[in-house]
Amino acid sequence: MAEPSAGGIAAPNNGNVPNADAVAGGAGQELGNRLLPSGVTFRAQVRQWWPYYAMMAPGLIFFIIWHYVPIWEAKMAFEQVRIIPPNIWVGLKNFQVLFSSPIFYQVLANTLIISGMKILFVFPVPIIVALLLNEIRSGKLRGTLQSAIYLPHFLSWVVISGVFIALLSPTDGAVNQIQTALGFQPISYMTNTGTIRWVLVISEIWRSAGWDSLLYLAAIFAIDPQLYEAAEMDGANRWQKIWHVTIPGIVPTIATLFILNMGMFLSADLNQVINMQNDVNASTIDILDTYVYRLGLSTGEYALATAAGLFKAVIGMILVITSHLVSKKLTGKGVW
């Protein structure tokens, strides 16, 4: 029986031409047989592909040691830690102590504010950077700009903190010298509780915007060029092509990265904060991670530190699931 073609005209099938689904299915089955031949053991697969397993090994070992082994020790949050084991099971007592501490709510509020500012002001910047880089027609200029904005990602927060402390110095910092030249009073940005959070946001943008834009650039390059040609034939200008073609094409990438960022919402970057923290601004940028760091290493309250870390992990999981469900409902895209 004739089947309609893409153009709406019936294409005859006289039995000699194989069905497209059958061809695709046969090709997929053949490819699967080639990749996973029957009778081949896992040991033989490892022996054949050992260079790839060797390249994966460092990452796997890292995750096993730092992300999977500690899961078992999370039970410490429900115990009273003793120098000589075994520990004593105390149930939710550590959480009761944690939630009754005013310091905990202060660091939780700081974490929520800083993370919220980063979601609002840092997360969109790599998207904008990727859109702007994509509009540069000169390959040489684009490559130069990409190299310049990627470089800060490879600097440690120790170096970046030193750079910002020097730039924002109230006496000889470049920023305050410009302010003074314009007739404004110098500001001690690193010790001012009203500006230190913005220093965290701006330094995060400077460090991560260029590198994070790589994922969005890759998503943009994967968009079918015929969509741009069709939009141009319809009379769309550059802005209309960005709005109607480019942005919808990278929505799945945006949704996935937003969900993953929500999982780290209560982290707020320990390395950044601990390098920019001082006695004056500590009350403003003291976050959950620095609180856990002090509990565990400074005061030896390992059970309380574990309870605070477990609380952060559970909230992160809830945020990931919630943002995934919302994303699926609004855009039809999620992480699974």
Rank of each mutant, 00 (worst) to 15 (best):
G249D: 12
F221I: 10
L155A: 10
G194P: 02
P225L: 09
M233K: 13
T191V: 11
P252D: 07
I187T: 10
R207H: 11
E204V: 01
Y216C: 01
L200T: 01
E229F: 02
N237A: 10
N176Y: 03
R207F: 04
A230E: 04
V163W: 05
G162S: 11
P252R: 04
F154I: 07
V158C: 09
L151D: 06
T253W: 06
G249L: 14
L227S: 06
V158R: 08
L227P: 03
Y150F: 11
S156T: 10
K241F: 12
W206H: 04
T195Y: 14
Y216A: 04
S203W: 02
Q226P: 06
N237F: 10
V159T: 08
A174Y: 15
I149S: 02
L155R: 11
S208T: 13
T191D: 15
Q226Y: 09
A222L: 15
I149W: 09
L167N: 02
L151S: 11
T246W: 05
Q177P: 04
V199T: 05
I250M: 11
S208R: 12
K241Y: 08
V175P: 01
V158F: 05
Q226S: 15
I149C: 05
I220V: 12
R238A: 13
Y189T: 01
Y150E: 00
G210K: 03
M233C: 10
P248F: 11
P152E: 04
I196K: 00
L168S: 00
Q146N: 11
T253H: 10
V163D: 02
V199D: 00
Q240P: 04
I250L: 12
G162N: 08
I254D: 00
A218P: 03
A231R: 03
Y228K: 06
Q179K: 14
E204W: 06
P225Y: 09
A209H: 01
H244K: 12
W206I: 00
A166F: 09
N192V: 05
L182K: 05
W243G: 02
W239D: 12
R197S: 10
L168H: 01
Q146Y: 09
I178Y: 11
P252C: 08
V163I: 14
I178G: 06
L257H: 08
N192I: 08
